[in-house]
């Protein structure tokens, strides 16, 4: 079954030369957890025509420091207003954290393949997020809720290391109340004040309320978490070509020229980052590929 995702019909602002960043202004910098923060940005020019599909990423440039690929985690309907949630893991992201409202940064994008929201029409949708993996999935959740009637059951399973590492907690609570959406969360380790589930997110899959014969699954998180999540989903009978994950690799260009993001025969920047499991299975989990 062909599952190679077409690039969506999105327009990137002024990409006559896709290596030129467009200036964006910081509206807000929000600390999410002790090592994760969200940038909220708007383009300097009107940015009309910029749109993105859930799962795509931008290349974010901090003046004079460097550029990194980060998934877009805002509502596609709010574009060109963008949000990017990221961990502070290196020079560029640490410098990014020091930016203030009113500062400018460079954006190139959107790049990459997207979550199969269209394909999920008429089906159950299972979203399994681990840690910061919820950030690239959030735009898909927005799209699903914007047209809730198109989908059958929607289940979100979210696991983090500890309760304090959960992202978007208030938003999750609101969604739980407002929409017909099943949300289950768990943590790997908890202090005694936590009264919820403890255990890895994969343990919630066997009993989650969805029909595996008619489900699209979207999985994002650390690679180990995705591998075991997929194993549980397949065990329950979800089709490998309807199970999607988001991969991650070093990127220097985002447009298939620098060669850094190669993963077996695939370029994560243009064949991914969202892949159907059936396509990525031959390389997933192979050491040093």
């Amino acid at each position: 079954m062909a599952t190679i995702l077409e690039q969506p019909e999105v327009v990137s602002a002024g990409l006559a030369d896709p290596m030129l960043p467009m200036p964006y202004r910081i509206q807000r910098v929000k600390q999410e957890t002790d090592d994760t923060f969200t940038l909220e940005i708007l383009p300097e020019d009107s940015g009309k025509g910029f749109s993105f599909a859930p799962g795509q990423f931008n290349m974010l440039y901090v003046f004079g420091v460097g550029e990194v690929p980060i998934s877009i985690s805002s509502d596609p309907d709010d574009a060109p207003f963008l949000k990017h949630t990221t961990r502070m893991v290196g020079t560029v992201t640490k410098a990014m954290r020091q930016l203030k409202r009113g500062d400018t940064m460079g954006i190139r994008g959107p790049f990459g393949s997207h979550w199969p929201v269209q394909e999920a029409t008429g089906r159950d949708v299972v979203i399994v997020a681990g840690g910061i993996g919820l950030a690239p999935l959030r735009p898909a959740l927005y799209r699903l809720m914007a047209e809730r009637e198109k989908y059958r059951k929607i289940v979100l399973l979210y696991g983090t290391r500890a309760p304090e590492d959960m992202l978007y907690r208030q938003e999750l609570e609101q969604w739980r109340g407002k929409f017909d959406l099943e949300i289950q969360v768990t943590v790997d380790r908890a202090a005694s004040s936590w009264r919820g589930n403890v255990g890895v997110v994969t343990t919630m899959i066997p009993r989650a309320p969805f029909d595996p014969t008619n489900t699209v699954a979207m999985v994002c998180g650390p690679e180990v978490m995705m591998r075991f999540t997929v194993m549980e989903l397949l065990k329950r009978g979800v089709a490998p070509e309807r199970t999607y994950l988001s991969a991650e690799r070093n990127m220097k260009c985002g447009i298939g020229f620098c060669g850094h993001c190669q993963y077996g025969p695939m370029f994560v920047c243009k064949d991914g980052p969202v892949f159907a499991y059936s396509r990525i299975a031959p390389v997933l989990g192979r050491s040093e590929v």
Binding site: G199, T202, G221
Partner: peptide, 17 residues
């Protein structure tokens, strides 16, 4: 076996830096 496997995943500290 299932408990052991999921405990191993907890040990791996998948979300840690």
């Amino acid at each position: 076996t299932e408990r052991l496997e999921s405990t191993r995943l907890q040990l791996l500290d998948m979300y840690g830096n």
